[in-house]
């Protein structure tokens, strides 16, 4: 098992970046750098990470970065991966895209690259709304959450994107959380060792959009797992395996009360008992579907 001592000490996200206080994306980008080092080319569609880089000619990311149009990231990375052999290129294309660029506007190009099994790593950094334009709902915003375009709480559930990608039958898919960097880094390294399309869905609580104190980003991410609202798992060649610490929470009685997770966030303020029951049921349903696949 990977230990913190084994990780590189280089700074891949430099001081002075333009992320908000408590931003999970700057954490996640650091982990990508620590996992894959200088071999990476990040393909970044429109989103918060377009801003975090800062103003040219400077960049806060000590990695190759190709900024691309919103819906295009998977296809651009596919273009790079498809000429690696012909032109003897060593770099690893890694898409770093938000939930909007992945599940919504860019979904067709994501699905296309997955179906072709293009040799690349796709990371969806999921902060559960369009945060860069100021907190509008996405298809990955969970049921009941306030956003500026769902002011009475979202009426629909969260699209199950990791499962949708699993059913694309790609060689590797995984979920991860910014609260568990060793797990995320190990998964990135495993993905880099596998040929074909690799998808990693990173849960990334956003203090600005979820309405919690910026000091609590990691705490909220951990709570999501402890109440069972976010499940760490991976699937190699379609074989699904729940990863620790989520393995404990297969036993429902071990999960913490979902209200602990909801109450810490302003976006779930004012939910009534019925709505909380809906959220509980959605969590149970997710577990049931996933456990049937293991």
């Amino acid at each position: 098992m990977l230990s913190i001592k084994d990780l590189p000490k280089e700074k891949y996200v430099l001081p002075g970046h333009s992320a908000c206080p408590g931003c999970p994306e700057s954490l996640g980008l650091r982990f990508v750098g620590m996992a894959l080092g200088k071999d990476v080319i990040l393909v970044i569609p429109a989103g918060c990470s377009s801003i975090i880089q800062g103003v040219m000619p400077s960049s806060s990311l000590s990695m190759r970065v190709l900024n691309v149009p919103f819906a295009s990231a998977a296809a651009v990375a596919a273009g790079i991966s498809n000429i690696r052999g012909l032109l003897d290129i060593k770099v690893i294309p890694v898409v770093w895209a938000g939930d909007g660029a992945t599940a919504d506007i860019g979904f067709a190009s994501l699905s296309g690259a997955a179906e072709r099994n293009d040799d690349l790593i796709y990371v969806c950094v999921d902060n559960e709304a369009y945060m860069n334009t100021g907190i509008q709902r996405s298809s990955l915003t969970p049921y009941g959450a306030w956003t500026t375009t769902s002011v009475t709480g979202k009426k629909e559930g969260k699209k199950e994107l990791p499962l949708i990608m699993l059913i694309h039958k790609v060689p590797y898919i995984a979920t991860a959380s910014i609260a568990y960097p060793i797990d995320f880094i190990s998964k990135l390294r495993k993905a880099a060792s596998i040929k074909g399309f690799k998808y990693i869905h990173l849960h990334a609580p956003c203090p600005v959009g979820w309405r919690f104190d910026p000091s609590k980003t990691v705490e909220v991410a951990r709570l999501a797992i402890e109440v069972g609202a976010w499940i760490l798992f991976e699937a190699e060649e379609g074989r699904v395996r729940i990863n620790p610490p989520s393995t404990i929470y297969v036993d429902k009685s071990k999960r913490r009360d979902v209200r602990e997770y909801l109450d810490i966030q302003g976006r779930f303020k004012g939910l009534d008992g019925r709505e909380i029951d809906v959220i509980k049921k959605l969590i149970d349903d997710n577990w049931n579907v996933l456990l049937k696949l293991t």
Binding site: V43, L66, V68, P69, A71, S72, A74, A75, V76, A77, A78, G79, I80, N82, I83, L87, I89, V91, P93, A108, S109, G112
Partner: peptide, 13 residues
């Protein structure tokens, strides 16, 4: 859209 995106990724490398 993806056709030109793929061509772009390849060309820029």
């Amino acid at each position: 859209f993806s056709a030109l995106a793929v061509a772009y990724g390849a060309s820029i490398c």
